[in-house]
């Protein structure tokens, strides 16, 4: 049964992929990309990767699509036909694909418990997590504790992307309200948005605080939180959203999020441990681990939510600029 679902989802992914290649309208291609992403999130659930599925659904199907649509709105919807014949790219792609498929023949079979990937560190993580870290979700324990350095680097990447987009698209923009009369008349959208806005924020908090026990954590919570404000901005205009959560505050919160993370690392050094060694944070090592994980997840959540909103504001308010300001 599981195999059947797997095969059907992969088939749908392939069809969506081919449809994206053929699609000449960029708006339609962006929507198909969202579908593609949602299908892969469903596939991740079938493959037992629930944390990954939640992240893909929030980031791939949610935020990336919004950014693609914003870019299409800022540029053009029409894709011109390429000047060259697609013969050479087609040959290159088929040759590369054939070589890669030949390469897979040596790989262990799908789902094989004896595959090398399952032999070394993974059993240790699975075995040690309940006793040493004390949280049931092994993905959270590996992400936040065992590989805490990586995750700090990840937050830095997000931070850098936020700074990069601010530099490219400008961060000193006047407030603007781009909601046209068209949106203002959509009463259903406004009522639903008002109804969902608090629920989405509440769900973000749940995802953040429940990340130790179930799927979720700082990254997902941050994105879900930002999605709430994006929905608000879509229904009530960017100006209102910026009154609710101003740019200036977001710029500070990005830094605060990263600083919380780094401060936990330095605090554990001051208490006699190594950088990001949470067990020294409390008298009991397991309590220390849990405290450390909670704090850094909070930092990640704050940083990610702020960066996503900064990027969204930057893209959308690009519309308001007169050409001479650019």
């Amino acid at each position: 049964m599981e195999h059947l679902v797997d095969i059907v989802l992969l088939g749908l992914l392939m069809i969506t992929g081919f449809a994206i290649v053929r699609m000449r309208s960029l708006l339609a291609a962006a929507m198909l990309t969202s579908i593609y992403s949602l299908l892969s999130a469903s596939l991740f659930v079938v493959l037992d990767a629930v944390d990954v599925a939640l992240t893909e659904a929030a980031i791939g199907a949610g935020i990336s699509t919004i950014l693609l649509l914003a870019t299409v709105a800022l540029t053009t919807d029409e894709e011109k036909a390429p000047r060259h014949t697609p013969l050479l790219p087609l040959v290159v792609v088929i040759a590369t694909g054939a070589a890669l498929i030949y390469g897979t023949l040596d790989m262990p079979h799908y789902g094989d418990p004896a595959a090398p990937i399952h032999q070394y560190v993974a059993p240790t993580y699975l075995h040690d997590t309940p006793g040493v870290i004390g949280v049931p979700n092994v993905v959270t324990s590996v992400l936040a504790s065992y590989r805490g350095y990586d995750t700090l680097g990840e937050v830095t990447v997000i931070f850098t992307a936020g700074v990069g987009v601010m530099v490219l698209l400008g961060y000193r923009l006047r407030r603007c309200n781009i909601t046209g009369p068209g949106i203002r008349n959509l009463i259903v959208l406004r009522v639903i948005a008002k109804l969902f806005f608090p629920l989405i924020l509440l769900f973000a908090l749940y995802v953040l605080l429940h990340g130790d026990y179930g799927p979720g954590g700082g990254f997902q919570a941050g994105v879900v939180f930002a999605t709430g404000f994006i929905l608000y901005a879509l229904a009530f205009g960017l100006g209102n959203a910026q009154r609710l959560i101003p740019r200036k505050l977001l710029r500070i919160m990005v830094a605060v999020g990263m600083l919380i993370y780094a401060a936990v690392g330095i605090e554990s050094m001051l208490l006699g441990g190594k950088f990001l060694e949470y067990r020294v944070l409390a008298d009991d090592p397991v309590t220390g681990q849990r405290l450390g994980i909670m704090l850094i997840e909070l930092g990640v959540g704050i940083a990610v939510a702020s960066v996503v909103l900064i990027i969204y504001y930057a893209f959308v308010s690009r519309h308001c600029q007169a050409p001479e300001d650019m």
Binding site: A49, T55, S64, V139, V157
Partner: peptide, 20 residues
């Protein structure tokens, strides 16, 4: 769990690269 962690963070990086 290890590939899950790697891909979770890769998805977040994909947001950064897409946005830029």
């Amino acid at each position: 769990p290890l590939p899950h962690v790697l891909i979770l963070t890769a998805i977040v990086v994909s947001l950064a690269t897409t946005a830029l």
